[in-house]
Computed example of a mutant assay.
Amino acid sequence: MTEWDLKKLRILRTLADRGTVTATAEALHMTPSAVSQALTNLARQVGVPLLEAQGRRVRLTDAARLVLRHTETVFAQLERADAELAGYLAGEAGEVRVGAFSTAVPVLVVPAVAALRRSHPGIEVRVRETEAAESWELLSTRDVDLALSLAPHAPVGGDPRFTRVTLLEDPLDVALPPDHPLAAAPDLRLADLAAERWIYGGSGPWSEITRGACEAAGFVPQRAHTASGWTAILAMVEAGMGVALVPRMVSARASGVTVRVLDHDRPTRHVIAALRRGAESGPAVSRVLRALRTAAERLAQAS
């Protein structure tokens, strides 16, 4: 029977994710030569070639992909074993590391942590603010246990490594200067703002969301100013420098601007929680996830 080396299998899986030996070495804090040697030894152990040269790069063989299909099942089961052992040893105690993008921290993560401190004080939640696209990468490298991101940047639904949970459908509202001619207009539509000067990020998820929503309404937004932080965006809107799409998670707490709900063709973004498949059976992680879902439900009801 083949002797499987979990460390080498993890290196192979990381290579499949990262694409190059150099990127794999950086992700695992190894040298490229150590990565190559480990994969050579793994191929010798399993008795089949795992890599083949492709120019200056390497690609996985069909045999390597077969090995990886079984590897995902093994790692998921090991996650379950870790989770059950942690529950047995720690009971209601434990540490859970949460990565979340900036707007989710005050309205979802903080209320969830506050509730857990009252109900389960033995569970320690460590919060790490991240970019939406970065959260699941930290989950993949085991730097966080639970990641909050936006749907376009979360792991795809069929990825065998992760479990996805939709926490919240977050509508997008329009922020207008208080004296804007359309601030009190009835039945406001996004298309009514086609000629406006828009404020949004130069790149990243919010730029994509703003452009996508406006294009779906039939126009390309004219970007007058670029900003990525909501404090800066809302300050510019308040000063009459333009208009902006703002997620309900932010607009519910905005002041100094007029926030209008779009009743027709309302754009929406989805907030996703992701965790490594199998880890959801851990008592501490499951309690944190439950607290986040409760916080999301309350936020949706309040808005």
Rank of each mutant, 00 (worst) to 15 (best):
W4A: 02
D5G: 03
K7F: 09
L15T: 11
V21T: 06
T24N: 04
S33Y: 01
Q37M: 09
Q37S: 10
L39M: 11
N41H: 12
A43N: 01
V46K: 03
P49H: 00
E52P: 08
A53C: 11
G55R: 08
R59S: 15
R69S: 14
H70M: 07
V74Q: 04
F75A: 13
A76H: 01
D82R: 15
E84C: 13
L85W: 08
A86D: 14
G87H: 04
G87Y: 08
A90C: 01
G91V: 04
E92D: 15
G94H: 07
V96H: 03
V98K: 03
F101T: 05
V105T: 12
P106Q: 15
P111M: 00
A114N: 12
A115Q: 09
L116A: 03
R117S: 04
R117D: 06
I123E: 03
V127F: 10
T130P: 13
W136I: 09
L139P: 05
L139V: 07
S140M: 05
R142D: 15
V144T: 11
D145V: 10
A154R: 02
V156S: 10
G157H: 12
V165C: 01
V165D: 03
L176Y: 08
P177S: 10
P177R: 00
P177E: 06
P178I: 09
P178E: 07
H180Q: 10
A184P: 01
A185W: 14
P186F: 15
D192Q: 01
E196A: 14
Y200D: 05
G201P: 00
G202V: 02
S203W: 13
I209S: 10
I209Q: 13
R211P: 00
R211Q: 12
C214H: 06
E215Y: 11
E215T: 12
E215M: 10
A216R: 13
F219Y: 15
V220Y: 08
Q222C: 12
A227P: 01
I233V: 15
A235I: 00
M236N: 02
G242M: 00
V243H: 02
L245S: 04
S255A: 08
S255R: 15
L262I: 02
H264P: 00
H264M: 09
R266K: 11
T268M: 13
H270Q: 05
H270E: 11
I272Y: 06
L275N: 04
G278L: 02
A279V: 06
A279Q: 14
E280L: 07
E280D: 15
G282A: 13
A284T: 07
V285E: 05
L289G: 01
R290L: 06
L292E: 06
R293N: 03
A296L: 09
R298Y: 07
A302G: 09
